[in-house]
Simulated assay, not measured.
Amino acid sequence: MEVERLALAGLVRLVPPRLGDERGFFSETFNAARFRQAAGTDTVFVQDNQSLSRQAGVLRGLHGQRAPFAQAKLVRVTRGRIFDVAVDVRRASPTYGRWAATELSAENWAQLFIPAGFLHGFYTLEPETEVQYKVDAHYAADHEIGVVWNDPELGIAWPLEGGSPLLSDKDRGLPTFADFNASFA
Rank of each mutant, 00 (worst) to 15 (best):
M1A: 11
V3Q: 13
E4C: 10
E4K: 12
R5C: 11
A7G: 06
L8R: 01
L8D: 00
A9D: 08
A9K: 12
G10V: 10
L11Y: 03
V12A: 04
R18Q: 08
D21T: 07
E22W: 15
R23H: 13
F25E: 00
F25R: 00
F26P: 09
S27Q: 13
T29H: 10
T29K: 05
F30H: 04
A32E: 11
R36S: 14
R36K: 14
R36Q: 13
A38C: 13
A39D: 12
D42F: 15
V44E: 07
V46D: 12
Q47N: 14
D48E: 12
N49P: 13
S51A: 15
S51M: 15
L52M: 15
S53Y: 06
R54F: 06
P68E: 05
F69G: 10
F69C: 14
F69T: 15
A72M: 04
V77E: 03
T78F: 02
G80L: 03
G80D: 01
R81F: 01
R81C: 05
F83H: 06
V85C: 01
V87E: 07
R90F: 01
P94S: 08
T95Y: 02
G97N: 04
G97A: 08
R98Y: 04
A100D: 08
A106W: 02
A110L: 09
F118A: 04
F122E: 03
Y123M: 00
Y123D: 00
L125C: 03
P127L: 11
T129F: 05
T129A: 04
E130R: 14
E130G: 07
K134L: 07
V135G: 05
D136F: 00
Y139P: 11
D142S: 06
E144R: 02
I145A: 02
G146S: 03
G146N: 00
V147C: 08
W149T: 02
W149L: 01
D151Y: 07
D151M: 09
D151A: 07
D151F: 10
D151H: 08
L154M: 12
W158E: 06
W158Q: 04
P159L: 09
L160G: 11
E161F: 11
E161P: 06
E161W: 11
S164T: 13
S164Q: 15
P165A: 09
L166W: 12
L167T: 11
L167F: 10
S168I: 06
S168V: 07
S168R: 10
D171P: 10
G173Q: 15
G173C: 13
G173A: 14
L174N: 05
P175M: 01
F177W: 08
F180C: 10
S183Q: 05
A185K: 01
